[in-house]
Design a protein around this nucleic acid. Structure first.
Length: 695
RNA sequence: GGCGGGGUAGCUCAGGUGGUUAGAGCGUUGGAUUCAUAACCCAAAGGUCGAGGGUUCAACUCCCUCCCCCGCUACCA
């Protein structure tokens, strides 16, 4: 878009109603989005800033069970908490909605129906684990069982939290449902997939070529990676009982995939905001920007745009300025590990210090890489920058005006060169800051803002009106008046330009100077405070933070860490105790005819090499006596290729061939698997003829 | 393993189509000052730009290899 857009639609990632908001969310998404929006509004642009709670999906249902309350109570609780937190921190949404609203259900269902009617989905039937007791299908992470790798009896179907191995549910030993502990069965189920590969070429053109210069490198890189990796069909429906019904007949218990419906929440929220919602979504002169964290890139840059394209009519995001992550004291922020600074707790500990946090998070925003939030840094930034530079400058000006002119704005007199220099600096600031904001460079913009306050301190220092006052007030009165007049204009500019970053502070400054709501266009003006205007000293904008309150925060985190470590050492002893228990129990009895179906042969390894692109796979060539065949085996972690050549192994020879990493594997090497998950090859004790039958 | 992002002063981070002394804030040190919340102002010290090779008259910037951090993604038939 080369022309200035007529209006803006700004979205901030929908927070998931499964835990409170922390500083990572704020730094990554909501603060930058809010700064951007406040700036646009100050520019007089037409903006819709939409967000809402994401309330569907499995985790909230689990949480409800854990806490012994209904799912609705869980999502209500977090929705209200989110709403309060955002309001407290001045995140100025035009609407904060929620995906449980009827309007969203309708919108999402309409969207699905539209794509369905056009025949844009692929239908696929697959076998999935099913909990007979609870009567529901099980998502991977709600199937528990013993980890084949480390023997942890509580591994999840998608990964083992003890050893970190990525798993799929059918690898678990003794799988059981996380809901009922029942042994799950496999059941076929039909779901609808969006064939993303059909959009690959279009996405490539749109992103890789079209946006190569204006999207952030981290976003562009991630998209490229996905597109070049090959896009695959992605399920848009799930077997769940909490969510939005798939709008087709006879499909009880089938819901829309949360990542299908959640982004549609932006549309529903806009609908809820205004009957004119279509002009924000379907007008080419609207600029759509999604603010998200890096974990959401694929959904906002690939899947959602593909959906919008499939539907037709809708505009696409002009930019998706995803931020990286904010760490906390050197560790990744984690809701489940309670490693976070929660917004509601922050305000209890630091009442009315929203801008302090907004400042610290903006100054250190993870724009290009993961950044670290430390309390020590927060403390020094607050005390030396907000207190020492910004607050102090304003206070000096207000106090001097009070002392020398009874709190009345004095008239400006004859200007000197030093005044002109400052006036130029002020005049240039709005454009400079705006340039940075337009490019989503928030920390730079904030630094430029603080430079204005710095220039004020320097101006004050260089002119030293207090020295002139001492030398004789009456003979220097005009000069002192001029210095203070200009300084007051600078203070007013700090309110105008600070509105996006520090809205609470900007409001306080306006009160001091008796200014109405300001616009960005007023920035740079030297006529914001009129001669004769009363300047109220309403007290310090920022009072110093005591070291003790910072130590208390650090102590809080240390306690969390300590508790976690104690937990970890307790848990460490468990696997040892569990080892004996993790032996796989006997399978049901079979008769000899079942066994006869199995054809196991002795074979000799002729060649062995690692499968490229795979950790655990070896590609083997075997002499089976009957033929020479290729077998892929997952023993690379246990055996080096060169150790295998010439060795005899046992081969399940009549197993249906199957492709692994693109290689056709004709059979399966037999191994003994220890309870710890270690694999040992099975072979005859003495060398025998290749092709000998094992029975 | 593959892919993407990142590894730059004590700390937190910018930056670079290859080219004279590599930047900011904080911290440290010295000076000046007292209107101001011992704040502000001036100055200085401080970096072999992750490691090792290569291309080049010239690399922190380009190429190759390796190491570390973050994320995405795959594979025990």
């Amino acid at each position: 878009m080369t022309q200035e857009p007529k209006r803006y639609l700004i979205t901030a990632a929908l927070p998931y109603a499964n835990g409170p908001i922390h500083i990572g969310h704020l730094a990554g998404v909501y603060v930058p989005a809010d700064i951007y929006v406040r700036y646009l509004r100050a520019m007089g642009r037409d903006v819709a800033f939409v967000c809402g709670s994401d309330e569907h999906g499995v985790p909230v249902t689990i949480r409800a069970e854990q806490e012994g309350i209904t799912v609705q109570e869980v999502v209500d609780k977090y929705h209200n908490l989110f709403k309060q937190s955002f309001a407290d921190f001045g995140i100025s949404f035009d609407i904060y909605s929620r995906t449980s609203n009827p309007i969203h259900h309708e919108t999402a269902q309409d969207f699905f129906k539209n794509l369905y009617d056009k025949g844009l989905f692929e239908e696929k039937t697959e076998e999935q684990y099913y909990d007979e007791v609870k009567g529901r299908f099980l998502q991977d992470r709600y199937i528990r069982g013993t980890c084949p790798n480390c023997g942890n009896p509580d591994a999840q179907g998608d990964q083992c939290e003890k050893c970190g191995t990525a798993l799929s549910p059918n690898e678990l030993i003794n799988p059981r449902s996380a809901y009922s502990n029942a042994t799950p069965t496999l059941r076929p189920t039909k779901n609808w997939y969006l064939p993303l590969q059909d959009y690959a070429e279009w996405l490539r053109e749109w992103i890789v070529e079209g946006h190569k210069d204006d999207w952030k490198t981290n976003v562009l890189g991630q998209c490229k990676s996905w597109i070049e990796d090959g896009l695959r069909p992605r399920a848009m429906t799930r077997d769940l009982d909490w969510g939005i019904d798939v709008p087709l007949e006879g499909l009880a218990g089938k819901k829309l995939y949360v990542w299908f419906e959640a982004p549609i929440g932006y549309i529903s929220a806009t609908k809820e905001l205004t009957p004119d919602w279509e002009k924000y979504w379907k007008s080419a002169d609207t600029k759509l920007v999604h603010f998200i964290g890096k974990d959401n890139i694929v959904f906002h840059c690939i899947i959602f745009p593909a959906m919008l394209k499939a539907y037709g009519d809708f505009i696409l995001p002009e930019n998706v300025p995803a931020n990286e992550f904010m760490n906390l004291e050197g560790d990744k922020i984690s809701t489940s590990r309670n490693w976070a600074v929660w917004l509601h707790e922050y305000l209890q500990d630091f009442p009315a210090k929203q801008d302090a946090l907004r400042y610290a998070l903006t100054a250190n925003m993870p724009e290009t890489k993961d950044n670290d939030f430390t309390w020590a840094d927060f403390y020094t930034k607050y005390n030396s920058e907000l207190v020492g530079i910004l607050g102090n400058f304003i206070n000096r000006v207000v106090v001097l005006t009070e002392k020398y002119f009874g709190g009345i704005t004095p008239a400006v007199g004859k200007l000197q060169e030093i005044d002109q220099t400052l006036i130029t600096t002020i005049a240039e600031a709005p454009e400079k800051i705006a340039q940075s904001l337009e490019q989503y460079r928030f920390r730079e913009a904030l630094a430029y803002y603080m430079d204005v306050a710095r220039a004020g301190n320097k101006y004050m220092q260089d002119n030293a009106p207090w020295s002139l006052h001492k030398a004789g007030f009456e003979e220097n009165k005009e000069r002192i008046a001029t210095i203070l007049h200009i300084s007051l204009q600078l203070v007013a500019n700090l309110a105008v330009l600070g509105e996006p970053f520090l809205p609470f502070t900007a409001g306080k400054i306006r009160t001091m100077l008796g200014l109405p709501t300001t616009t960005w266009a007023q920035g740079g003006s030297m006529d914001l405070v009129k001669e004769g205007q009363t300047v109220q000293n309403t007290g310090l904008l920022f009072d110093k933070i005591e070291e003790a309150s910072i130590e208390a925060q650090v102590g809080k985190l240390e306690a969390t860490k300590k508790a976690r470590e104690e937990n970890a050492t307790e848990n460490k002893q468990e696997p040892a105790k569990e080892e004996k228990k993790t032996l796989v129990p006997l399978k049901p009895e079979i008769d000899y005819t079942d066994f006869e179906k199995i054809d196991i042969r002795v074979a000799t390894v002729l060649t062995a090499e690692k499968v490229k692109g795979a950790d655990k796979l070896l590609q083997l060539t075997l002499d089976t006596g009957i033929d020479t065949r290729t077998v892929v085996s997952g023993i690379a972690l246990q055996y080096a290729p060169e150790d295998l050549v010439g060795k005899q192994v046992c081969l399940l020879a009549n197993l249906a061939p199957r492709k692994l990493r693109g290689i056709m594997s004709q059979g399966m090497i037999l191994t003994a698997e220890t309870p710890e998950g270690t694999l040992r090859l099975i072979a005859p004790h003495e060398v025998v003829t290749n092709g000998s039958v094992v029975k």
